[in-house]
Amino acid sequence: MTIDLFILLLIGFMLAAGLIAVETSDLLSAVIAVGAAGFALSVIDLLLGAPDLAFPQVLVEIITLVLLIRMIMTRRDTSRQTPRDTLRTAVVLLGGGVFLVAAFLAVVGLGAGATVPAFGEPLLAGGHPGVSAAYLWQFDKDTGVANCVMGILLDYRAYDTLGEATVIFVAIMGGYVVLRKVGRKRQAQEPSP
C-alpha cells in the first residue's frame, strides 16, 4: 500500500515537471524539468521491481540531459516565446478531462465492473495456464537464461526486439540525414536568394 502511495506521489511529481517543462519560458529550465520527470519514472520502475527497465532509463536520461544542455549552451538564442493562447489551453484541458473520465470508467467501471484488470495483475495470466504463467514456469528450461526478462526479449519475443533495433537504426539514419555535412556545404556555397 505504501508503495502505491509512493508511486502516486511520483506520478504527481512527473505531472508537475511536465507542466513546468511546457510552460516555462527558459529553455534550460524546460530541459531540467524533463530530466526530473525521467528520473522519477526510473524510480517508479525500481519501486515496481523492474530493474531491467530502470537501468536503461537512468542511463538514457543522463545522456539526454548532457546532450540537450550541451546544445542549449551553444545555441542559447534560438529559444522563442510561445504565444499564450486561451483557446489552445482550453482544448488541451478538455482533452485531458475526457481522457481522465475514460480512464476512470475503464478502471472502476459504471456497474458492469472494471474492464481493465486491477493494478499488479498481469494481463495475459487468464486461461489455463496463461501465457505469462507459462513463461514464468518454463523460461529456464526453454531458453537457458537466468534473467527471465532477457529470455522473453531475445527468445520468446525476439521479433519485437528486431523491430526495436530497426526503429533505433532508422532513427539514427534520420539523424545523420539531418546533420550530414555534404548538404551543409552545398547550401553554404550556393548564393542565397
Partner: peptide, 26 residues
Amino acid sequence: GGMILPANLAISLKVAAGLIGIFLAL
C-alpha cells in the same frame, strides 16, 4: 542461453556505435 549472448553483443555494438556517431555528428 544459446543465441542470446551473441544477440546481446550485436545489439550492444549497434547501439554504442550508432549513438556515438549521432553524438559526434551533433
